[in-house]
Amino acid sequence: MRVVAKFGGTSLGNGDRVERAADSITAAVENGHEVAVVASAMGSTTDFLLDEIQYEADEADRAEIVSMGERTSVRMLKGALSARGVNAVFLEPGSDDWPVITNEHGEVDVEESTRRAKALAEQMHNDHVVPVITGFLAQDHAGNITTLGRGGSDTTAVMLGSYMDADEVVIVTDVEGVMTGDPRVVEGARNVGEITVDELRNLSFRGAEVVAPSALTYKEGDLSVRVVHYQHGDLMTGGTSIEGEFENLIDLQEDRLSCVTVAGRAIRNRPGILSELSTALAEEDINIDAVSSGMDSITFYVATDVAEEAEALLHEKIIGSETLSSITVDDPFAVVRITGGDLQAEPGIVNDIVAPLAAEHINVQDVITSATSVAVFVDWENGEDALGLIQDVFED
């Protein structure tokens, strides 16, 4: 089994943890697995180095300076593996076998990086070598050091796992996989055995520090990615398995939708109002397709054939309420949904999506976004035209 194991800064935070990491790698190698290692800077070294740059350093100098954290880690870990009799080598930008190459725009050169990663995988197989690779760092075609941004070590690991045709990527960190909640805040938080990439990406963009969102874009469906705690000690078991892959999809929902809007004074300051209204619909098996809210209103998008029933149910909640004042229904609307793992990383993506609609005088009723999707609501009669215009954006 071919495995890429990434060790985060906390998991290499001191000599004892480096020893623990080396023990787990050695055990996997002795059990017949091919292991490539990606190492982050020890502890908070990168943050320390960045904080100590008190002068106006250009990007090239900054990259050289911050690379020292990862350069130290791979030497420490390679040494610990060699002491255990493991045939290990460390790789950093400038090494002959260095695998991660970027182009003149600072973006990963997929073709060249894939070629190098496959050559490295072949060397692992033929020479029974364990490469210990600096995470976060890359090298351009001129030999200059570049970086992959915050969370870049996760990106290095999943990228190489994909390009090397690995069976699994194991992210070794300071959490016991993905938890049901932050154990520092909620009691009884427990490990989630499995989670999809879409679920985790949404959590990651909203504060969950488990796997860098940029890394998940490199995960393909047949590549297993697992998160384990550094104290677990076994690379091959435990933790949380991240399932599936991002699907880039643009589609037009077939059913007509109606927007049912409830208005009220300072509705945002009324605790439980959203639950109260949505529960009334749920009790009658009315599905809510989407929800948007403003300063003094909440809009539910529901199928047009149940809109009148929804209006009647929510009207009952308005009568006698001091907060709610009125309800209205408008229809029919179409929704175009754009789903993709890279959306959050593309500045101006929402503008890119809606600008062509404005140019064709198509009114946008609503836009609802998440970390991995954008839903654009337009008049029903404009649905097909909107779909075509948005498809053109992504084809370009």
Rank of each mutant, 00 (worst) to 15 (best):
R2T: 12
T10I: 08
V18H: 10
I25N: 05
A27P: 04
E30V: 01
A39N: 01
M42Q: 11
T45Y: 12
D47H: 04
F48I: 10
E59F: 09
D61R: 15
R62L: 13
V74H: 08
M76I: 09
L77F: 04
V86S: 05
N87S: 14
F90W: 14
F90V: 00
L91Y: 10
E92V: 14
P93R: 12
G94Q: 09
S95M: 11
P99H: 08
I101D: 03
D109W: 07
V110P: 00
K118N: 02
K118F: 00
L120S: 07
Q123S: 14
H125W: 03
H125T: 15
V129M: 12
F136P: 08
H141S: 12
A142Y: 12
G143S: 11
G143H: 08
N144F: 07
I145A: 08
D154M: 10
D154F: 06
S162E: 10
M164W: 05
A166F: 07
V169I: 08
I171Q: 02
V178I: 11
G181D: 14
D182L: 10
R190L: 11
N191A: 00
V192R: 12
G193K: 09
E194N: 09
D198G: 00
R206Q: 13
R206V: 00
A208E: 06
E209C: 00
S224W: 00
V228C: 03
L235V: 04
G238V: 04
G238P: 09
G239I: 07
T240S: 15
S241A: 08
I242F: 07
E243D: 13
D255A: 15
C259S: 15
A263H: 14
R265W: 08
R268I: 01
G272A: 10
E276V: 02
L277G: 08
E284T: 14
V291N: 03
M295K: 12
S297E: 09
I298D: 04
T299K: 08
T299W: 01
A303D: 15
E308G: 05
E311P: 00
A312M: 12
L314E: 04
H315A: 05
E316S: 11
I319R: 12
S325Q: 12
S326F: 02
I327F: 03
D330M: 03
P332I: 11
V335C: 12
R337I: 13
G341F: 08
D342F: 11
L343G: 05
L343K: 11
Q344N: 13
G348E: 12
D352F: 04
D352V: 06
A355W: 04
A358I: 01
E360A: 15
H361L: 09
H361Y: 04
I362M: 07
N363C: 01
V367D: 10
S370E: 06
A371M: 02
T372C: 10
V378Y: 06
D379A: 14
G383I: 09
V393P: 04
